[in-house]
Amino acid sequence: MAFRLKLVPEDTSIDFFRAQKITFGLSAVLSVLSLVLVLVMGMNWGIDFQGGTTIRTESSQPVDVGAYRQAVSTVAEGDIVITEVFDPSFGADRHVAMIRLQALPGQEAVSPETITAVEAALQQIDPSITFPSVESVGPKVSGELIWQAVIAVLVATAAIAFYIWLRFEWQFAVGAAVSLVHDVVLTLGIFALFQIKFDLSIIAALLTIVGYSINDTVVVFDRLRENLIKYKTTPLRDLMNLSVNETLSRTVMTSGTTLIALIALLVFGGDVIRGFVFAMTWGVVVGTYSSVYVAKNVVLWLGVKRDWSKPGDTPAGTQFAAKGS
């Protein structure tokens, strides 16, 4: 026998429901906590959603946030946020900061005069400073972008639930939808907790998480569907455990390869997309967890009709929910 790396031992028979009160309770508590965090601490909305201007500065001189703030506040009104950016790929003589200016009420975008003035003021305190990117979004567009984003996530969840309903049973669709909402809410929560900038690309990350998590869930469901036909009398709970155990090594393997790729991006991918990659990394972890601990618990509670293969065996994958629901 050749050597094989086994992330999961062969033939596991873990009872995934033994601690279900704790795991499901934990999920519920974390979800509620996330919502509370979002409400209490608020999100660190990027300009895509709030309007305003971000200026990225780069300089060979160390960033002096205080001096920057003083310089900027002489020429710009409203809230000014200055953060220094660190990245392992920056050399010792590369210092990057992000400056955010608020959009003033009644203005479509921060005026170009203000931006020019800010740039000039910064150049005064640090002649070596450059501005690799300047982005400005008006409040009108940002309002629409929020709605577009919310709609995108909702439509995606609904579309997936519909597809699952078509291919499996409605209980599976509900289970999948619950686990998707769980993943999205937990991701929002961690963004609120660490006040990571939430911009348009994070929405893309959220939808990717939705896609990844559903992929994981579907693999378990697919096996469950097969086992439901194979073992007609075994209790649902045992069948679920069997299905998860049978697919466990695949689940861990795929999460492993995906996480490895994401961690490579997180470390080497540069600071511009770090928030985006972080959301996806977190989402893969949460999504894997939820397909094992959330989705099928919901299905177990809802129960599944067991008499759906009455006249002899029907091959897997041809069951449509239309007759069962």
């Binding site: 577009q148 709609i151 995108a152 439509v155 995606a156 579309a159 997936i160 597809y163 699952i164 291919r167 348009l200 929405i203 893309a204 939808l207 990717t208 939705v210 896609g211 990844y212 559903i214 992929n215 994981d216 579907v218 693999v219 469901f221 697919d222």
Partner: peptide
């Protein structure tokens, strides 16, 4: 099934997203 569901989210991203 796994790829089709991800495909759905991809399509939605394409039609509702920008840039």
């Amino acid at each position: 099934d796994g790829n089709l569901t991800t495909f759905i989210t991809g399509l939605i991203l394409f039609f509702l997203g920008s840039g």
